[in-house]
Design a protein around this nucleic acid. Structure first.
Length: 603
RNA sequence: GGGGCCGUAGCUCAAUUGGUUAGAGCAUCGGACUGUCGAUCCGAAGGUUGAGGGUUCGAGCCCCUUCGGCCUCGCCA
């Protein structure tokens, strides 16, 4: 077998005159009857092979039979292509290999789609033939970036005294949080393991075990419906540290992120990364993961709305709702009335808003200054119009968009609308990265359906010390020592200082309506560990998939996972999940209820 | 669980109001060709219009059911 001496994509003028062997796949071939050219592809790139019947007739004869995606070994001499024959679009375009010996290592069927144009091909087919899709340079690059990110992560944490420690994949189910993937136990019939949603409790217990600094690049599982940026099976960079406060965790981990962005993209992240309170983020951006690449802040207009003649606004304010909006620079020129009233209104409707009010800012028809144009402008006095214009510091051609509803609905609708307009109006550059730590999250949020508090982060998050008394009196306004790292409106990581005091932990369980008995059943092992000398500790977890998405500029999580699943959780390559033999079910003491979930229509 | 978009040749798409034998580019196969690089030129083959049912003289197109993909709301401590 002809064995590689150098990667195709690495060949340059400096290799001139050397005899080399390359291994790779046929990217394309051009047969002129006499001269034959074959572009061979390996992991690092393409190189052109030349076959000349006058020089090596046997190699030439074989080369004429070769087809796309065949696997080759080729030995030959690197030579310059000569004047006018260079290909400036290829890094290897100044040279070529004149082949002396060709070996067909394997033939290939005609692929179901062309590699050059695979980016346009139906993703279903690409997932089915994942090994062909992954041959594309852009896909391989994403795998390479992912590899480099994990390599940098390991090196960084190692240099900072962290140990990488594995935690179990077969764990204990807890009803909190996302739906668990369950694994039936053969030895304990009727009992189940759960795949980890995260190694949360294990990493805290590792702190109690005096490992001091832990990290792990770890697979996590949450059985919820996927999205473009979400898979049921995903990877976290999981971190925990002892004897630290929130700032310590943030300093160490923003250092990692800065290193990654520097080494992968050459982007300098200014440290320390700025911080913003949760409250501020909600007020200005309507969301706890603000996209700071552009301004366009939300403003509360409830006061003006309440005084207006516009019934929709006044009645909402009267009922305790709010009116908020933002001003899109140039939006009045870009968006037609029908764009706003159909497309954008439907967009906010998906988030629960009952309507979208709009005002276009225009020069006054009579005299100097600005006025508002809209079907609802008549409900606002000139003074009110000027106040709205002033509040946004608006200019002619701008568009003010407003939603009136409960604060929750208003923010849920406006935040994505703001992001959409920011992108459509070209307010951010593709190479721009705006980082922010969002801090001071509330510890709890009220769950009106269950009539109890839920943890916003998770039940092990430590309250801000001065808010501890509110555990008895005012749980809704307790701040937590939690922090999320947000980039361009995407949460890439989040963590907290943990509770290390068993009494505080018990109190939190009380507020979450977890009884002492339930707490003992689910977390008894953990509560006990807290009683045997738990150090103050805290940590964070980053979503590796989303991080790599940012670094490779894709909005499809499947692009950064070698073998991803579809939106219905299927692996189209292997056809998992599948039914299993009756024997396997018998061993597990399981019976499938076919009348509920008929898997096989034949039966 | 809800909403939206989509499914026609191997791939990407087209096909007038429901009307002749469902077309094109690329890929494939055969032939020609000495410097190409999205090679070029000539020719050929390639279809259960996702599946099933219905309406109709006639269905890729209309109706019903169903399968699958993507996006999204809910969900994701």
């Amino acid at each position: 077998m002809l064995k590689r001496t150098v990667y195709c994509g690495q060949l340059r003028m400096e290799h001139m005159g050397q005899t080399v062997i390359v291994n790779g796949w046929v990217n394309s071939y051009r047969d002129h009857g006499n001269l034959v050219f074959i572009d061979v592809r390996d992991r690092e790139g393409l190189v052109q092979l030349v076959f000349d019947p006058d020089i090596h007739p046997e190699a030439h004869k074989l080369a004429r039979t070769v087809r796309c995606e065949w696997v080759l070994g080729a030995r030959g001499m690197v030579r310059p292509r000569g004047e006018g024959l260079e290909n400036p679009r290829l890094p290897t375009g100044k040279i070529e290999i004149i082949v002396q010996e060709l070996e067909v290592l394997n033939q290939a069927k005609t692929p179901p789609f062309e590699i050059d144009t695979a980016a346009q091909v139906n993703e279903e087919l690409r997932l089915q033939y994942r090994y062909i899709d992954l041959r594309r340079p852009s896909m391989l690059n994403r795998l390479a970036v992912r590899h480099r990110v994990t390599k940098i992560t390991r090196d960084y944490f190692d240099a900072h005294g962290f140990w990488e420690i594995e935690t179990p994949m077969l764990g204990k189910s807890t009803p909190e949080g996302a739906r668990d993937f369950l694994v039936p136990s053969r030895l304990y019939k009727g009992h189940f393991y759960a795949l980890p949603q995260s190694p949360q409790l294990f990493k805290q217990i590792l702190m109690m075990a005096n490992t001091d600094r832990y990290f792990q690049i770890v697979r996590c599982f949450r059985d919820e419906d996927p999205r473009a940026d979400r898979q049921a099976e995903f990877t976290q960079i999981d971190v925990e540290m002892s004897f630290v406060q929130a700032e310590d965790v943030m300093r160490v981990n923003e250092g990692l992120i800065a290193r990654i962005f520097k080494e992968i993209l050459g982007v300098e992240v200014a440290l320390p990364i700025r911080q913003m309170t949760y409250q501020q983020a909600i007020a200005d951006y309507g969301i706890d993961r603000p996209d700071l690449r552009f301004e366009m802040k939300l403003k509360d207009l409830s006061d003006i709305a309440a005084d207006s003649q516009f019934q929709v606004f006044t009645s909402v304010v009267k009922k305790g709702g709010i009116v908020k909006g933002f001003c899109a620079p140039g939006g009045g020129d870009k968006y037609s009335r029908s764009d706003i009233e159909k497309t954008l209104t439907q967009f906010v409707g998906d988030f629960g808003a009952k309507g979208l009010a709009w005002l276009k800012v225009a020069p006054k028809e009579s005299g100097e200054g600005l006025e508002l144009k809209s079907s609802i402008a008549k409900f606002f006095t000139d003074a009110q119009q000027q106040e709205i214009i002033g509040r946004f510091d608006a200019s002619a051609g701008d568009l003010v968009l407003m939603v009136a509803d409960s604060a929750d609905v208003v923010n849920k609708a406006l935040a994505p609308l703001r992001v959409r307009l920011g992108k459509e109006l070209g307010l951010c550059r593709p190479d721009q990265f705006e980082f922010v730590w969002v801090v001071d999250f509330p510890l709890f949020e009220w769950n009106p359906d269950e009539k109890r508090y839920d943890s916003l982060h998770h039940p092990f998050t430590c309250p801000v010390p001065e808010d501890l008394p509110k555990l008895q009196t005012d749980p809704a306004h307790i701040r937590s020592q939690a922090y999320d790292l947000v980039v361009n409106g995407s949460e890439i990581g989040g963590g907290s200082v943990r509770i290390h005091n068993p009494e505080v932990q018990a109190k939190v369980f009380d507020l979450l309506n977890i009884s002492r008995k339930q707490a003992e059943d689910r977390f008894g092992f953990f509560l006990r560990a807290l009683e045997y000398g738990a150090p103050p500790h805290g940590g964070i977890a980053f979503g590796l998939d989303r991080l790599v998405m940012l670094l490779t500029q894709t909005d499809n999580i499947r692009d950064v996972i070698a073998f991803p699943k579809t939106q219905r959780g299927q692996c189209l390559l292997t056809n998992a999940p599948s039914d299993v033999d009756q024997k396997q079910l018998d061993e597990l003491n399981l019976r499938v209820q076919k009348h509920l979930h008929q898997l096989d229509p034949e039966s």
